[in-house]
Design a protein around this nucleic acid. Sequence first.
DNA 1: GTGTGTGAAATTCTTCACAGCG
DNA 2: CGCTGTGAAGAATTTCACACAC
Lengths: 218, 218
Amino acid sequence: MEKELPIPSLTRLCAIYELLSRYEKNGRKKISSTELGKSLGVGAVNIRKDINFFGETGNFGVGGYEVCTLKKHIGNALELGKKRNACVVGLGRLGSAMLAYNGFMERGFTLIAGFDSDVNLVDTIKTAVPVYPTYEISDMVRAKKIELGIITVPAQAAKDVARRLIDGGVKGIVNFSPEAVSSDDPEVHVTNIDIIEEFAILSALISRDELKKIKKKM
Amino acid sequence: MEKELPIPSLTRLCAIYELLSRYEKNGRKKISSTELGKSLGVGAVNIRKDINFFGETGNFGVGGYEVCTLKKHIGNALELGKKRNACVVGLGRLGSAMLAYNGFMERGFTLIAGFDSDVNLVDTIKTAVPVYPTYEISDMVRAKKIELGIITVPAQAAKDVARRLIDGGVKGIVNFSPEAVSSDDPEVHVTNIDIIEEFAILSALISRDELKKIKKKM
DNA sequence: GTGTGTGAAATTCTTCACAGCG
DNA sequence: CGCTGTGAAGAATTTCACACAC
């Protein structure tokens, strides 16, 4: 049986794809694995392995990849050109910022609904996309074929919101609340992003460096 | 030479620490590696290996870890109790949301400055923390001993802001702009978080599942 | 020289298997 | 039983080394 693309490779390929999109917009024609690697903080060989996982690109020994060709190559293999509908649950400061962000559309993701538990807010908020109360999540997700959900609610509400989203048929979730959510359905993918945890990780790395420095002096 | 804690372990330990903080607040007394593993979507053995990296906790065969003891054990090993100063650069919607978020203080991180390139905004914005123009970043970081920085500026400004932060002496950066930043100084740690890339990854995973399903039917 | 492509080696990380405790 | 702790085995991923192209 042929092997699957490893998750780290998939992640890097998505990052490369984003980079290439930017390069393409700036009119850049060629790019080398070395430079891509530098931008991502990864070895160049690694980049080439990732790129070649689905077969050669036809850019052998030609002094770099053609931006446009490579983008197509990756986008094709991962179906990254595919358009998908998304929604945001929790319209506090962070959620509103998401709703207002126009980077989604540029890359084929359409935010077509916002949700909040505060019906007062739902009535009064001014946004380009329609907004509904929380209890309509599952129905709306089903009706509007929403595949991706962003959770920006307080910790205690996160698990319930995730359940509603999954009930409706969402296949991917980005959760910004500090309460980690997970899915037992292997076809529902969840990414938890907790800024405090990121800070904790950085803090631990800093402490480690400090300790190392002290040790060196001894 | 003794080995270093692997990065994945460090990451998990930080996540565990966050969990324990929450449990402690809720008055919970004990917790098993099995349950921790479930919350993090990781095997229980993995959790135990992580926890024991710095030595035993003294909770052998006792039917679970004591929340309080374990938290101290991890916090101690990683210096997670350490207070650090932080700042936010870019006070658009996302940056303002960060400034207003009170989760930082609760965990020992103090947001003591905000920065924006729009001097008009700097004069008029209403926040609890003082706000300065972008060109003062390096000086302020140095003067106020800021160790962590959050970047929430548009893509084209990210690299410049990162440079200013690092010039000032910041040791850790969380960058929310789509332009990935990196540091050549191994003692400056950077985490890039790009919501669009997260969506792209989820999208690729979804496509993969769909493909798998089709194949199974054949 | 700078570049790509790739099997083999090395490393890093996870899981297994089992001993020991309440 | 279900729990912790841990050396050994296993799997996943990265890096090395080198062939080849311009």
